[in-house]
Amino acid sequence: MKLSLALASAAIALASAFPAFAGALTIYSPQGGERAVWIAEQAKAAGHDIKLLNAGGGELFDRLLAEKNNPQADVVLGMVDTSMALLKKEGLFQPYSPSWATDLPARYKDAEGMVHKFWQTPIVLAYYPDRLPDAEAPKSWLDLTKDEYQGKYVLGATAWQTPRMYLAGILVRFLDANGEVSDEGWEFLSKLYAHAIIANDADSYTEAFKSGRASLDLNWLGGSFKLAKDLGAKVKVIDTEGGTPILSEGVAIMAATDQLDEAKAFVNWWGSADVMAAYAAKFGQVPVLPEALAKSPPAVQENARLVKAQPIDWDAIAPKLDGWLQKIELEIR
């Protein structure tokens, strides 16, 4: 009785689920929560029938690789430079030049014409002036290992996108002639970890600041502002010597999509200046399309000029990053 009931309901759920599955454009994106809701609403209003699958960047990456033989996604949206570069290498994407690509600065486009980036996200070093006087704030990422900053900054889990990026940003400064990280670089990193507060989850990250122990925030720009707002404190972003790593998130159409026209239409809509500007107005993300930036609120435009970029060739770093992280996870931290 119970069995047949459960089976029946499962069958009904399945029957009702399949038609929807066939119709909608499936988009894999790390943009979750209210951002995902906004994207879904706006897309629907613009006439795009989409289904979003949200997960952490690392998980989505693994999933896309695992599904390689039978891709479920039609479009990948909002993953960072390195991930997009590796997915492209696996042959998952197909070339398409969106309507907004012509005005896009060259460094946000790839040679193959598959991945187009639409946002930039600086990974910043910021400090809380009420805890750390302006004069004592570090000038560069490399200052962090100085004794005065011991126990004042938090390193997040390497599974997270942000720590991966600033760790990469630090290590590229120590590349030798062969393109390998020098011993000096690893020594620096060991010290960086030895001096740090370590957080494995979001709660303990926040807690380190709540308790007043941490005064330096290594975070993506929006995250840094959000944390400061939650804490009710003022935060200042440092325009570091040697530059700040800036990521950009891209969009690409899967090679295996069976809804190419819908996918193209969606990508064209998504990257357009109006949508980007609206998103910037809502969430403060800095668009890279000049027209979109011009239409964005002044605060966003200001953020775009906050720090100068560290020159990093993400496509070159992407294949090495896993090895670096492995060394950090297994030996250093």
């Binding site: 689920a17 599955f21 979750g32 929560g33 979003l52 699958l53 997960a55």
Partner: peptide, 17 residues
């Protein structure tokens, strides 16, 4: 998949959100 997003995913998302 997109049609059966289960509770644990929602809970973890809620926890990190």
């Amino acid at each position: 998949n997109v049609n059966n997003r289960p509770l644990p995913i929602a809970i973890v998302e809620g926890a990190v959100s």
